[in-house]
Nucleic acid binder design. Sequence first.
DNA 1: ACCTTGCCTGCAATCGGTTTCAGTACGAGC
DNA 2: GCTCGTACTGAAACCGATTGCAGGCAAGGT
Lengths: 362, 362
Amino acid sequence: MAKLTIRDIAALSGLSKSTVSLVLNNSPKVDPATRRHVLAVMRRHRYVPSFAATALAKGSTRLIGMVVPGLSWHMVASINIGVAAVTERSGFDIILYTATNDRDYGSLIDRILTSSMASGLLVVSHEQPLEPLVQLHEEGLPVVLVNTIDADVALPSVTADNYDGALTAMDHLLQLGHERIACVQGRMTYRCCQDRYRGYLDSLRSAGLQPDPELTKPGDFLPEQIRSRSHELFALPADQRPTAVFAHSDVTAYAVMTAAAEAGLRVPEDVSVIGFDDIESAAQIRPPLTTIQQPFIDMGKRAAEMLLAEIGPTDDSSEADVVEPPAELPRLVMPTSLIVRASCGPVPVTRSPRGRSQTTKA
Amino acid sequence: MAKLTIRDIAALSGLSKSTVSLVLNNSPKVDPATRRHVLAVMRRHRYVPSFAATALAKGSTRLIGMVVPGLSWHMVASINIGVAAVTERSGFDIILYTATNDRDYGSLIDRILTSSMASGLLVVSHEQPLEPLVQLHEEGLPVVLVNTIDADVALPSVTADNYDGALTAMDHLLQLGHERIACVQGRMTYRCCQDRYRGYLDSLRSAGLQPDPELTKPGDFLPEQIRSRSHELFALPADQRPTAVFAHSDVTAYAVMTAAAEAGLRVPEDVSVIGFDDIESAAQIRPPLTTIQQPFIDMGKRAAEMLLAEIGPTDDSSEADVVEPPAELPRLVMPTSLIVRASCGPVPVTRSPRGRSQTTKA
DNA sequence: ACCTTGCCTGCAATCGGTTTCAGTACGAGC
DNA sequence: GCTCGTACTGAAACCGATTGCAGGCAAGGT
């Protein structure tokens, strides 16, 4: 009943505290037979070393903090799968910080890191200022940003190649013959959305097309707003109306498709829609959504690996000029991939009868 | 640079270790002025007491474990919002356990609880055997089940009233005049799905209708399977085809609607579909889904509150016959609510031209 | 018979707090 | 001038591990 301590295990197995501790720490200086015996005793009595005591003595908790903007996004759920797979394998556990609106990040980070509650921090899609993190990182605290939304900060990060993804999406539409391609943006304060929009613009321009400001609509990931702005798009006279829409996310694409249906337009016959993310339901809706897949699970894995690598070597390297990582900040940019389903088709034949010349491809 | 300790703060503020500790623990025995001074010194030097040391000394981590089956479900995300709101307010943090396929639950639970890493456990929609948890709970370890899928176990729990929700859903359909109502089931090993099915059957029977086994289809929450089984439903001859479908979840309802569209049936004109959950996109799809809302956020809150209540009173009550909670296991069953949108309509008039006699309504 | 080597013991310090307790300094109240 | 209460001190024990070190004991090599 009363919690067992290492001392009890020592007594029960007829050995000394030191030896038991050595067993716990996989020291090679213990006879294999003895080790087995001790482990058997532990198992029999369901002994598990005190987490707090171990943490205090070792100076490390084997806990990593994960800050997320909420769990409801596909992205977060997927990243977590990757992270969990890696941390679990390495015997780390995850402290979850759901970043609600009003939380005070400064003190949160202090709580986690300064109290050495967590050995490292994984920050997913953070909307808050990152300066405090940069400072802590310079002081030697492992931090990795996943899917960061900020412009370049001096922190290791793992992101998807949003710019290239946008290029790929646009390429797909261009190859189908579309020229009047609209863009329904996500939250433009996010780096990823800026990148996607940059890709949109560059792609048009390098195809010799002039981006039409009329065809760019803010959406901010809000279904209602997306729908009403899409209606503006579809209400345009036929020769100005877009034949395709590049949506900054899959749920944005859903809303665009809904608006299209409400406007009496069929997807993909009248208008093509391409999304971004490849969320689970993308394959299930009607029509199945063509989209750009982001490798979230892998991003989670890689991020966790990077973090563990940063943590690993020196468990508490408060000694010795710690400043080794100026070498080069690891910044992983992972490739996206085009998933072709059924929401994009060739440009409607009835439209644009005048001499469309296929612009030369790069 | 080197981490500050309570001893440093004592020196810096010209006081003793004891006093500083008293300040940290909000003891009333410290002069308010002194307290302010100490706090100022702490803030100035960004001191945060060591998590491990505090945990060791106090015998409690203020960490609660949350075991979830994955983050990708709406349910889990919502429950977490509620849980986080409560724990955050009480200064607890959450250790997240994503229950992947192969994880060894026994050892996991030992790690968390026996090592007193977490002061309590919140188990969300658990598919694993619960006996070890029951045992630990009897030994005095706080556990609360949220949205449990098991039959009654001797553990405190918070669930939605799935049976009543099913009744409400069916009532809605019955009132619209439907009599041939199909049921596309979820994972029938889950308690919640059993309850929903029970509600379906009871509702039919109490309306004087004979449940038609032909109209019950397993779905197991798998979109592909749901679609193909729904096709069987819609391929039935017109007089045997269901005029309404009660789907065991919203995503199930989506798949049913997709199948309907593929079969050339319109929702709700030709067939009504009602879901269960009220996930975010339910209002966004076409047609907006009528569904039964589960109060997940509140469930999370209540569960967290129950858990904290169990933890709260006695921080480390290893003394004194701990066995107080046999009194009554708190089992909270929370009401669901019908959200009427547009996916359900009156029974089609064109159908059943031959002498369908409207059975007497209750 | 001597020296290694391998395995283990016991003791003690350490991690950074909490908590208790006897004791002190100081000002107020009588 | 005495007592009392308040606010604080300093020392010490404690939480349950890790780690280092001196030393013991037995088996094995030479």
